[in-house]
Design a protein around this nucleic acid. Structure first.
Length: 274
DNA sequence: AGTCAAACCTGGGCGC
DNA sequence: TGCGCCCAGGTTTGAC
């Protein structure tokens, strides 16, 4: 389940291997992943382009290409971008293969076929799914308590739904939402409009801390997630609540409660979170 | 504006 | 061992 820390880790693992590489051919094995054009146009447009740089916005990866286009990739739940040698056999669920000038390949693998790929003119982000509507980048330097206060203003509803809404804050998914709420001592179903200033400050600190930790430990490898070299992260070893429903809270020993909030499996501590 | 459910897709875990 | 069933999850879409 790639969220901000996982996508950031994929980006960092791909950068040294891909920046400056030229795309010399593309095999489309499953065209459904390409969302804004047909596979023939996609392949034709990409051939001979150079990958100038790779960046991240929320859970989206942006490959800035020569001649002013950007390849936008969203991994959704099970998508993987992997660097492989030509001779390595293709694993099942390999949907796209980019042949690189250096001799290696970039492969897009996705068991559930939920991943999204767009090829757009750089800057035309409105043509790349939800990319143009993303809220602020929570690990950016300019994401301050005031910015959080601004996006919370006049909003109502459950705190977890807010954290998961990419239009409010970019990059938080189900795992980090639960971890953030536990650290902040706030219940997932807590209503935004009832938060006081110290609680908003705690929420701010938890957002920054948990996402930073996630990046530091190179992401959470619960099911499929690996970086561009196929390496797992280790944040799953540090999870406090996610996937621990019914087990004792690591702070107070109370059994953690599993529920559904905002349509998502959710775990929280009834004693530590209010 | 918020809330909820359905849809997309497949593999893993469960009970029998 | 094998079958059927349900669940997980990010995001969009549509209904209320």
């Amino acid at each position: 389940m790639p969220e901000l820390p996982e996508v950031e880790t994929v980006k960092r693992s791909l950068q040294p291997l891909l920046e400056g590489e030229r795309l010399i051919g593309i095999d489309v094995l499953y065209g459904g992943i390409i969302k804004n054009m047909d596979p023939q146009d996609f392949s034709r447009l990409l051939v001979d382009r150079v990958i100038n740089s790779i960046s991240r916005r929320g859970k989206y990866l942006l490959f800035d290409l020569s001649e002013g286009d950007t390849l936008v990739v969203h991994l959704r739940m099970t998508g993987q971008l992997l660097i492989s040698n030509q001779e390595e056999p293709r694993t099942k669920h390999t949907h796209l293969v980019f042949h690189l000038s250096g001799g290696k390949q970039l492969r897009f693998v996705d068991v559930r076929k939920f991943g999204l790929i767009f090829l757009v003119r750089s800057g035309a982000w409105d043509q790349a799914g939800g990319l143009a509507q993303l809220g602020p980048e929570p690990l950016a330097e300019d994401f301050t308590v005031e910015v959080l206060l601004g996006v919370l203003k006049n909003r109502k509803g459950m705190l977890k739904a807010f954290l998961l809404d990419q239009k409010r804050i970019a990059g938080i998914g189900n795992i980090y939402a639960d971890e953030i709420l536990f650290m902040a001592g706030l219940l997932p179903q807590r209503r935004i409009e009832t938060l006081n200033m110290p609680e908003i400050e705690a929420l701010y600190l938890a957002i920054r801390t948990k996402l930073q930790e996630g990046v530091e430990y190179r992401g959470t490898s619960i099911s499929d997630y690996v970086d561009g070299r196929g390496e797992k992260g280790s944040f799953q070893e540090r999870l406090q609540v996610y996937d621990r429903g019914g087990k004792p809270c690591l702070k107070c020993g109370t059994n953690l409660v599993k529920s559904v909030v905002a349509g998502r499996g959710t775990v929280s501590c009834p004693k530590c979170q209010r």
